[in-house]
């Protein structure tokens, strides 16, 4: 099942393991220059707001209600990255998840059209916690092209470039957990400390009050699709497990609709986040960029995705400059984050 908690999608699989949870959110960030150079990872500037499509059924296109899921606002030419976290289970390991990401139903790792299920050859998914984030399309080994929002129908999106149609837009997410018996075998329990039991004992002593539960136009103009922007150094890691280790019967998936930020205000009545700083503004303030060091093996890039035109190239071809600004920068302050994320290691600024 999927819940929304503080603008984060929380995928849980209580029938597999009570504590198996994948937290996924979309991070605001600056658009890196689309200038042929390869950049380090830009910062996270906070989560994009997320809301249930069903809560605004009367104000969104009928097709959105049919597809279900959630929606979030993006400005034209705004960039984003996707953050993945899986909390530790019983202090032994993060529960592993297989995660498929597509934009406009085009797989962000392989460039293939969407199909349910997981494929290893070539690998069409990410593994969490090995992969802490995804910033764009996997165009070659160790290199991606940043996700940049463009209006659906304008011809920039990966979907439109590969299929000739702007039918879907948005982001599609599908998640599968590791099989429970495989998790127990690969990450054996540490004796003894039965934390849940201990917690429940303590709760009875501490709680005198009952425990509170969770309270709880024109279609093309509203919809955004993601298109490839500037190049960035990021590896998509090879699955360190076997395909048979994943519980492919336990699927959870979601359609994330991207709404033009101006339309978001009309639909939801709430303000979208402000536009992020430009890369040049960010760099001139001396703020950090990031690099991720891992010894895990990376997958090769997708030829299909490598053949896509970037937003800048496509704008040039159409004779309409598509980026409001595109000033090159030379990042000086690059922070390297390592291995498994530990407390204090953040890519947010």
């Amino acid at each position: 099942m999927i819940e929304l908690r503080a603008d984060q999608m929380v995928f849980t699989f209580p029938e597999v393991h009570a504590e198996a949870a994948l937290h996924l959110d979309f991070q605001r960030t600056l658009r890196i220059p689309d200038d042929g150079k390869s950049y380090p990872l830009p910062p996270g500037l906070g989560r994009f707001p997320l809301t249930h499509v069903d809560d605004h059924a009367a104000a969104v296109p009928a097709s959105w209600v049919e597809r279900g899921g959630v929606m979030m606002p993006m400005f034209q030419a705004e960039a984003m990255w996707i953050s993945f976290q899986s909390p530790s289970v019983d202090d032994r390991a993060s529960y592993p998840f297989l995660v498929k990401i597509a934009t406009g139903k085009i797989n962000a790792v392989t460039g293939e059209e969407w199909r349910d299920g997981a494929n290893r050859d070539p690998q069409d998914y990410l593994v969490v916690p090995t992969q802490p984030w995804l910033d764009g399309y996997c165009v070659e080994k160790g290199k991606i092209r940043q996700f940049v929002a463009m209006p659906l129908g304008a011809g920039f999106s990966a979907e439109e470039q590969l299929t000739g149609k702007g039918e879907w837009g948005g982001v599609q997410v599908e998640v599968y957990p590791m099989k429970r018996d495989v998790f127990e075998r690969r990450f054996p329990k540490r004796p003894p400390s039965d934390r849940r039991e201990r917690l429940s004992e303590m709760m009875f002593g501490a709680l005198s009050a009952p425990c509170a539960m969770d309270a709880e136009e024109d279609e093309c103009a509203a919809s955004m699709g993601l298109a490839p922007g500037g190049s960035m150094e990021q590896e998509i890691y090879d699955d360190p497990f076997d395909l048979a280790d994943w519980d492919l019967r336990q699927r959870s998936r979601c359609f994330v609709h991207l709404t033009n930020s101006m339309v978001w205000r009309a639909i939801t009545g709430s303000e979208p986040p402000t536009t992020p700083p430009t890369a040049a503004e960010y760099e001139s303030a001396g703020l950090p960029w990031f690099d991720w060091y891992s010894e895990a093996k990376a997958v090769a890039g997708s030829e299909k995705l490598a053949g896509l035109k970037s937003v800048k190239e496509m704008g040039k071809e159409k004779g309409t400059p598509a980026l409001p600004e595109n000033q090159s920068v030379t990042p000086k302050n690059v922070v390297t984050l390592k291995g498994t994320m530990v407390k204090g290691q953040v890519r947010e600024w």
Binding site: I2, E3, D54, G68, G69, V70, K105, P210, D214
Partner: peptide, 26 residues
């Protein structure tokens, strides 16, 4: 009223009341 009615329910019954993101046809 809601909390009093749910107070004695077992966890698995309460979990079903958590609002899920609905998946549709795509």
């Amino acid at each position: 009223q809601l909390i009093r009615q749910l107070a004695e329910l077992p966890d698995h019954a309460v979990l079903r009341l958590v609002r899920e993101v609905r998946d549709g046809d795509w």
